[in-house]
């Protein structure tokens, strides 16, 4: 157990606790519909170091999702969307790779790759995660417009929270 691993485990507890104890209680909407759900836990998967083996990343995503699911009473829903996001991470990283390549030991944050890079990286993955989440939640094409509205509104607010978390707490 080196300090890096311990830091990751600490971050896991902080992020999951913020999600299930604070953000879960906040539901914003109008006219009986709740469009805005605040998600911070995808950040944990976003910040896993780049050198991590891919199957390990997906496994960690599944476990994180199941733990969040237990608090939300929605078995499989968060787990499924987080596994999907973890699977897609490799492709997004490849697409955004800088000319000189990645320094494989680092976590991808604002401080290592810059704000612009992190904004694109996190928004693409968080959007995919939310789209998958709300589609699976509806599980039918009947609610397409509601799914899209929920995805877009939740995405904007979740992204703000994720960037704020990274900017303020500065995870290394």
């Amino acid at each position: 157990m080196n300090t890096n691993t311990i830091n990751i485990i600490k971050r896991f507890f902080i992020i999951v606790l913020i999600q299930v104890l604070i953000l879960k209680q906040i539901n914003i909407g109008w006219g009986g519909f709740n469009y805005i759900h605040l998600f911070i836990y995808p950040l944990f998967i976003l910040l896993i170091p780049l050198k991590t083996k891919r199957f390990l990343l997906i496994l960690v995503a599944f476990i994180t999702g199941i733990i969040v699911d237990m608090f939300y009473d929605t078995p499989g829903l968060h787990a499924g969307s987080l596994v999907f996001m973890a699977y897609m991470r490799r492709y997004i990283l490849k697409f955004l790779e800088p000319v000189e390549g990645y320094n494989v030991d680092t976590s991808p944050t604002i401080w290592t790759f810059g704000l612009d890079w992190f904004l694109i990286y996190s928004s693409v993955l968080v959007f995919l995660n939310l789209l998958w989440y709300f589609s699976m939640e509806a599980f039918s094409f009947q609610y397409t417009s509601i799914v899209l509205l929920r995805t877009i509104f939740s995405f904007i607010f979740s992204e703000v929270i994720i960037v704020l978390y990274v900017a303020i707490l500065n995870p290394k």
């Binding site: 199957f55 997906i58 496994l59 078995p75 499989g76 499924g80 973890a86």
Partner: peptide, 21 residues
């Protein structure tokens, strides 16, 4: 192909859980 395999397995498990809830 370990990544895509574990992805498929875990995703199927999640969907199974959702449907059977």
């Amino acid at each position: 192909y370990n990544a895509i395999l574990i992805f498929a397995v875990l995703e199927t498990m999640s969907i199974y859980l959702i449907i059977n809830y």
